[in-house]
Design a protein around this nucleic acid. Sequence first.
DNA 1: CGCTTCTTTCAGAAATTTGTGAAGTTAAGG
DNA 2: CCTTAACTTCACAAATTTCTGAAAGAAGCG
Lengths: 165, 165
Amino acid sequence: MTETAGDGRDAESVSKFVESFAAQLVEAGMQRMAARVFAALLASDKGVLTSAELGEQLQISPAAVSGAVRYLAQTHMVSREREPGSRRERYRVHGDQWYEALTNREAVLKRWESALREGVTSLGADTPAGRRLAETLAFFEFVEGEIAAMMERWRVHREKTFGQG
Amino acid sequence: MTETAGDGRDAESVSKFVESFAAQLVEAGMQRMAARVFAALLASDKGVLTSAELGEQLQISPAAVSGAVRYLAQTHMVSREREPGSRRERYRVHGDQWYEALTNREAVLKRWESALREGVTSLGADTPAGRRLAETLAFFEFVEGEIAAMMERWRVHREKTFGQG
DNA sequence: CGCTTCTTTCAGAAATTTGTGAAGTTAAGG
DNA sequence: CCTTAACTTCACAAATTTCTGAAAGAAGCG
């Protein structure tokens, strides 16, 4: 059985999962390194890894880790931590926050809505195209509200199923 | 005022909307030509354009139109029509279907779930990482169910707001 | 059945994206 | 303060993606 450094788990199984899950995320539009880093964190024992650990496990340069983490932090899928009095940064998946970021993409929705709003104005709200855009806009606004409610239901459902986690 | 062929609308306004909305879609991961074609259809008078019209309006080759439309049709964001007795294909946005394709992405979710399921098995459901993956999996399964309900609520909401459309 | 018109496929050029090594920056610890 | 360990930024090489022109493929129409 192949073992990594100290975490006592089958490195090959981990890698297999990491690569296959990352591949799916990539297919859905995520940058490759970001996807691999994220998957590695998900599959890690504590949900926390250092830059060096990520680099070694995924066989990528510090620069690649840095870039991936910047992206993931911006999109709120991982958070950076620093043990006080250390130069070592640690990256963590929030057991119950990251998927909001994944599905929500509120910023994306907002920008779509903004573009649509301008379209309605400039094409005219009384034109067929304007009406189509207005309806599309209404849909996104609707979705935006629904997602919040859905996440709330998830939290309830989750607690029932998994406890406080 | 700049007018296109026969639709009597300000070509520049249309183009402006098309390009800015398409840009947002691209940023969210859609292929550029697909995004432009889609936006052009959204902003068209009838929600229908021919291949030639798309090529001219967007200044792209027939090949590019073909590729974009293939993608959009595969993802159910537009449908292809053919007036019986014509070689000319027409592409249409479904005023009230395309966003299902956009948000649904059921196939994507399914593949994510599948990768996670394998991860849970191979890492062990009783390990910390296994539990994290299992919870993630549960989340996606939850979302999958919720989306159907959400779309149903949208249909109701839409009819109240826009009528039968 | 061949002509014509439209769409698709394909190979390749161009542009973009990605990941690296190396230099630069920051901050802990002596 | 100087050293050193870590992270970040930058320029470039490599890989990938994208779009085009050209050729091939369908399908109506005479």
